[in-house]
């Protein structure tokens, strides 16, 4: 196994502190991994400009890699190309669903700039009904919207398309 794939494997141990079932690899925020002489250089991209988890994630990456002998660990932040939910892995989407968060739809169904547009068909992660409604486009974290299921009545988070 090449050292870079070893680093990728180690990065799977680093979880998103706000959605702890997802690793940073599942989330698709690792843009590049480079082995340097004795250390590693990791490029990460934020999901949202103000995501408060980014500092914690960078620190955890340092700790995990340093714990396995990689020194120094350099973390670079890249903004372009901007992160999109399309970079989330299929495994990541399944983990989200099992955790009770509706994963981003594979394709953004509604992307016109119109106000009060037709809402996306979002599936309830609990009873799998599509009979759901959006309560707010902004949820408990920057990356999620708040929905409620009209059938089982459970409120739930939707990892919104971005």
């Amino acid at each position: 196994m090449s050292t870079e794939s070893t680093i990728w494997k180690l990065l799977e141990e680093v979880k998103d502190p706000e959605v702890p079932v997802l690793s940073v690899v599942d989330l698709g925020i690792i843009r590049d991994v480079k082995q340097t002489e004795n250390g590693a250089e990791i490029s990460i991209t934020p999901t949202y400009s103000g995501c408060p988890a980014m500092d914690v994630i960078a620190m955890q990456i340092r700790m995990v890699l340093a714990g396995h002998g990689y020194l120094p660990v350099t973390i670079r932040t890249v903004l372009s190309p901007a992160w999109t939910t399309e970079w989330m892995t299929e495994a990541g989407k399944e983990k989200l669903l099992a955790y009770g968060i509706a994963p981003p739809n594979p394709k953004q169904q509604v992307c016109t700039p119109d106000y009060f547009q037709q809402e996306e068909a979002v599936q309830c992660p609990h009873c799998r009904s599509f009979h759901t409604r959006r309560i707010s486009e902004f949820g408990s974290t920057a990356c999620k919207a708040l929905y409620q299921c009209e059938d089982c009545k459970e409120p739930f988070d939707y990892f919104k398309c971005h």
């Binding site: 103000g50 995501c51 408060p52 707010s136």
Partner: peptide
């Protein structure tokens, strides 16, 4: 509550943009 969260999310986006 929902709009409190929405405007706080927007504030967070803006402060993140400001940091960049």
């Amino acid at each position: 509550l929902e709009q409190d969260i929405a405007i706080s999310n927007i504030a967070l986006d803006q402060i993140g943009q400001a940091r960049n």
